[in-house]
Amino acid sequence: MDTSIIVEDEHRDDEGSKLGMWLFIFTELLLFAGLFIVYGVYRYLNPEAFHLAAQQLSVSVGTINTIILLISSATIAMASSSIRLKNKKLTLILLISTLVMALIFMVNKYFEWSGKIHHGFFPSSDTLHTLGNGDTLFFGLYFFMTGLHALHILVGVVLITIVVVRVSKNTLTDENPVLLDNSGLYWHLVDLIWIFLFPLFYLLT
């Protein structure tokens, strides 16, 4: 049989890639939307318990994490611009600072979670069962939703790490910045979801 290899022409469609990314982000928002509905229903059914339980969360830690995520969103957006200005060094600095901030966020989260678990506020703990159904649901939702969000942070970290490696190897330049742009979009999504989680759990007391 014919063994000559067809040279496949490189198909590249940056617009298409971004469209795909936007659609994917849409599905992620819907994923969390399901949880927001569940949160809404149970808050409506247990207003008092949710009100009291929310006071257990530290507003200052939540605020710090919000600020960290907002700045990290800014740095990755700036990385998208700096790669177009062919400034590789600045791009790398911006990307790595995004990663560092993601790390700080996770460290904060770790201390926050372990504090809660230490005090007995975790799903199916005895403390919660004695407190009642509203508290059980509040902390169940808290761990489930922030946990799922933290999982998204980790996925974002992996994505941005790939981008860092590719930028430093010069396989991602101002010629083909779409992977960086899409990672940025994903990171903004992670940020956006947090912006909803923060008032729902920390501020609505």
Binding site: A33, S124, L148
Partner: peptide, 24 residues
């Protein structure tokens, strides 16, 4: 793409329910 995420999160809640006994 509009409907599947909802069942995704619902099934995930069942998983959470079985593993962590959250009470959803």
């Amino acid at each position: 793409i509009l409907a599947t995420p909802i069942v995704g999160i619902t099934l995930l809640m069942i998983v959470g329910e079985r593993l962590l006994n959250i009470g959803f």
